[in-house]
Amino acid sequence: MKLSALTRTRRGRAMLATIPTVAVIGVLMGGVAQGAVPVSMAISGQQFKISADKLEGTGFSQYAGTQKDADGKKHDVAVANIKDAKLYNLCQSVTVPGAPIGLLISAGTDPKHPVEATDLQIGMSDLRGTATFDKIRIGVDASTVSTEAKGHQGDFAMDSDAVNIDNLKQVSSSTSAAVFKLTDLHLKISDGTACF
């Protein structure tokens, strides 16, 4: 009986996690200036995975930041900002710890209709892929990066006019965007299958 109740609670939490993810999506709500991550957003502390065949973006910056969970605990993250982004064959997955259940979201599977995002901001702990930067600047002050969202004065940062990443694999604790358009969106309860 207790195990059943626990399973329902975890499934309920998993379902609730999809509501903001899909509504703003998914992932994603509006970026903020003067900060690493939206201050009004208390993260869950649980990470999720995102993959895409390709990400194409313009207006890019990256610097260190922190996020707080609902208990006020700080989490160190790498913050990436992209003014306009296209993601091809996007996958997002989150699993419930200790249970064979999760959420799996896909979108932009048609190469002619990728996922599109504006003012995209990502708090992540891991990023992999083959990246190409256009007019990159490494070692700039985080408070002077070329994107609207900026880091703290004195912090190390980089920015570029454009970024392309092939075979993107990312572990994130948050993602937000002013607008996020997902074509061919498909969300389903999974057996814990992850994007990678």
Score class of each variant (00 low, 15 high):
Phe196Leu: 13
His75Met: 02
Gly139Leu: 08
Asp69Thr: 05
Tyr88Val: 06
Asp159Gln: 01
Ala5Arg: 13
Gln47Ser: 14
Ala80Asp: 07
Arg137Gln: 15
Ala33His: 10
Val140Glu: 04
Cys91Gly: 03
Ser51Gly: 14
Gln92Cys: 07
Lys68Gln: 10
Thr175Cys: 10
Leu103Phe: 04
Asn89Thr: 11
Lys83Ile: 06
Ser125Ile: 15
Asp161Gln: 08
Leu103Ser: 00
Gly154Arg: 03
Thr175Ser: 14
Val32Phe: 06
Leu168Arg: 01
Ile101Ala: 10
Leu103Lys: 00
Thr193Asp: 12
Gln92Phe: 09
Val77Ser: 02
Pro114Trp: 04
Ala80Asn: 13
Leu55His: 04
Leu16Asp: 11
Ile82Thr: 01
Ser160Lys: 01
Lys188Thr: 14
Arg13Val: 12
Ala162Phe: 03
Ala17Gln: 15
Ser106Val: 13
Ile138Thr: 14
Leu120Ile: 06
Ser51Tyr: 02
Asn89Cys: 09
Ser143Val: 09
Pro38Glu: 01
Arg128Ile: 07
Gly151Lys: 04
Ile138Gly: 05
Thr95His: 08
Ile82Asp: 06
Ala80Gly: 09
Pro38Val: 05
Lys150Gly: 04
Lys112Asn: 11
Leu90Gln: 08
Leu3Pro: 04
Ser173Ala: 13
Val39Glu: 15
Ser4Arg: 15
Lys188Gln: 15
Asn167Pro: 04
Gly123His: 04
Asn164Tyr: 08
Leu182Ala: 15
Asp119Trp: 04
Ser4Leu: 15
Ser160Gly: 08
Lys68Cys: 02
Met41Ala: 15
Gln46Trp: 10
Lys49Cys: 08
Thr130Pro: 02
Asp110Val: 05
Arg8Thr: 15
His186Pro: 01
Ile19Leu: 15
Ile50His: 02
Phe196Asn: 12
Leu187Pro: 07
Val37Asp: 05
Thr109Asn: 05
Ala99Trp: 12
Gln46Tyr: 12
Val179Trp: 13
Val32Arg: 02
Val163Glu: 04
Glu148Pro: 03
Phe196Asp: 14
Val145Arg: 02
Gln67Trp: 00
Thr147Ile: 06
Thr118Lys: 09
Met1Cys: 13
Met158Gln: 11
Ala194Val: 12
Lys73Thr: 07
Ala117Gln: 10
Ser106Tyr: 08
Thr193Phe: 08
Arg11Glu: 07
Ala149Phe: 00
His186Leu: 09
Ala52His: 02
Pro100Ser: 13
Asp84Cys: 02
Ala17Ile: 14
Ser51Arg: 01
Lys86Ala: 11
Leu168His: 00
His113Cys: 01
Ser172Phe: 06
Asp84His: 13
Gly31Lys: 02
Pro114Val: 03
Asp126Glu: 13
Thr144Ile: 09
Met124Gln: 15
Ile101Glu: 14
Ser172Pro: 05
Ser176Trp: 01
Pro38Ala: 00
Phe180Glu: 00
Ile43Tyr: 04
Leu168Gly: 05
Arg13Lys: 14
Gly65Val: 03
Asp110Arg: 03
Ser40His: 05
Gly108Cys: 00
